[in-house]
């Protein structure tokens, strides 16, 4: 990992800490209040704030996890250089696509 990847990985990690706390708080709130799927969708559909919140979260995870996977591949497999980097970029894109699909599903009006 070079200094640029290091900064991206630590920055996204720091970003995820507050996002994660809010995410968990929301899960607690929803189950405590006994919100149904319809109740939740009523709050998230059309909400720019929730779209931004989870959009940023998904982006951070995709960047953070693919840089992390690059380290794992370097240390635990013989993959090196461009083969490894293409593999982790593909993994990052897959995470982003899956994540954004889920975000879109709950925020589109």
């Amino acid at each position: 990992m070079n200094v640029r990847l290091y900064i991206w990985q630590r920055l996204t990690a720091a970003l995820m800490v507050p996002l994660l706390l809010v995410h968990i708080a929301v899960i607690f709130y929803a189950s405590r209040k006994g919100l149904s799927a319809a109740d939740i969708l009523a709050r998230t559909r059309g909400s720019v704030s929730w779209a931004l919140f989870y959009g940023v979260f998904v982006s951070a995870v995709a960047v953070h996890a693919s840089i992390g996977l690059r380290t794992v591949l370097t240390e635990w497999t013989p993959l090196r250089g461009r083969t490894r980097d293409f593999a982790v970029i593909a993994f990052g894109l897959l995470l982003a696509v899956l994540g954004f699909r889920a975000v879109v599903a709950v925020v589109l009006p």
């Binding site: 990992m1 070079n2 200094v3 990847l5 290091y6 380290t71 370097t74």
Partner: peptide
Amino acid sequence: AADSGCHA
């Protein structure tokens, strides 16, 4: 600061 330097 390069790959496999201190950040590894």
